[in-house]
Design a protein around this nucleic acid. Sequence first.
RNA 1: CGAGGUGUAGCGCAGUUGGUAGCGCGCUUGGUUCGGGACCAAGAGGCCAUGGGUUCGAAUCCCGUCACUUCGACCA
Length: 478
Amino acid sequence: MADKQFVKEIADINADFPQWYTDVVLKTQLVDYGPVKGTMVIRPYGYAIWENIQKELDARFKATGHQNAYFPLLIPKSLLDKEAEHVEGFAPEVALVTEAGGEKLAEPCVVRPTSETIFSTMYSKWINSYRDLPLKLNQWANVIRWEKTTRPFLRTSEFLWQEGHTIHATREESLAETIDMLHLYSDFARDVLAMPTFIGQKSEKEKFAGAEATYGMEAMMLDGKSLQAGTTHHFGQNFSRAYGIQFLDKDSTHKYVWQSSWGVSTRLIGAVIMAHGDQRGLVLPPKVAPVQAVVIPVAAHKAGVLDKASELAECLRAKGIRVELDARDQSPGWKFNEWEMKGVPVRIEVGPRDIEQGVVTYARRDTCDKATMPIGGIAEGIASLLDEIQSNMYSKSLAFRDSHVKLAHNMQELGKILDDKCFAKVVWDRDPACEALFKEKFQATVRVMLDEEPFQDVCTACGRKGDNLSVALVARAY
RNA sequence: CGAGGUGUAGCGCAGUUGGUAGCGCGCUUGGUUCGGGACCAAGAGGCCAUGGGUUCGAAUCCCGUCACUUCGACCA
């Protein structure tokens, strides 16, 4: 429940950011811990954020020729075992079902940690001809990965996500899909989550188990740590060979399909919280906020106030704004704080004074500014204010990010940059030993390799020249 | 899985050298309030995480277990 102590506890968000994060997700009633360790109960307020993310993303998937489907939660263990690298990568974290209905199963099933194996199995049955390709499916589902340590939204044993699995006749097409989806994600993060991201290829070490290449979208959190907010994978023919997904091509020969997969999860909610929050709690971008505007009557007992407030709420609702009328019997100040903590973008106050002057008082969450606007045309006014907040939040995030990225020419600089809670751009010769050095010295990792020209001709880590130099983003990460 | 921390009312905590349980918030009822977490009054709510010791007596001391949590290693 919202309380005074909470506002004090998070007074300095930089002092203990992870703690602030945990407090805020629990106390704003986004989630509770589940009875099974590492699981979370997503409460309605938290789930509504996910629903908004789903709605926006799903529309983008459909617009790019994808369809939704659903595949089973339980996967026979033997299916998982077919792709060697994949099994090895996921084995430590799969949950295994060995018994059901009081009897031991003939073959144990894994609870899906991801669904490449089952998609591939079905694809092998469905695909005959090049005419069946491409096939671009997505599913909204839950998966289970038995992680060692967990944090709500960022890493839980069970999480919700979407996973797209596509198969194509050619390598080029499948690679293009992988890259296109990466951009779809980062556009989505920018336009909907108001969150700038870095995109690029993952290092060999950070690659998805079984993939030929993995691409990632990294977002900067307010404490200067990075969060992987989405990934896309190009599998080449690794899975199609393991699962026998073949088609008869125009040239009358059998060929293996080329495959991609991509996903984002409820972790995006965590990303939004950690990218925009402040001392008072959540700050939600209007496009994902469960409640975009809250109407709070002031002196509700006085004649006409409650009527006016509910009339206003109705007017905003008619305009398609997600609005809530808070007519609870609490003092206005109490409500102000609660809704601020919950990150509602706009608060509208209606009191006798406003009514008399034909205005409403509003406060925007992103800047905490308070002003008035005329009651006439209120719906249009609030709608455009929401747009303004959405774009302002992005500008603010972008400015923050850009001022927290620095070039590291050598290891001394890199250490300093990371300690200043910034991201570093390094020049890297792609030697795993250099990558290991980042980790060993600074507990930092190569997040992604950026599509940029090297800013010097030697590797930041080892100082040697090389013909394989690329710019990489190095940061400490969640 | 390693290292710390914490388990006492729904939440946050106090509880002194051992003597049988308290505070704030929240909740219920009634009343006054209402422009930044209002006030008064009356209530309800506890196997002090758990199992074993020590003791006349344990929330308190000792040992074990479990849970949660933070930091590292691993991952969306």
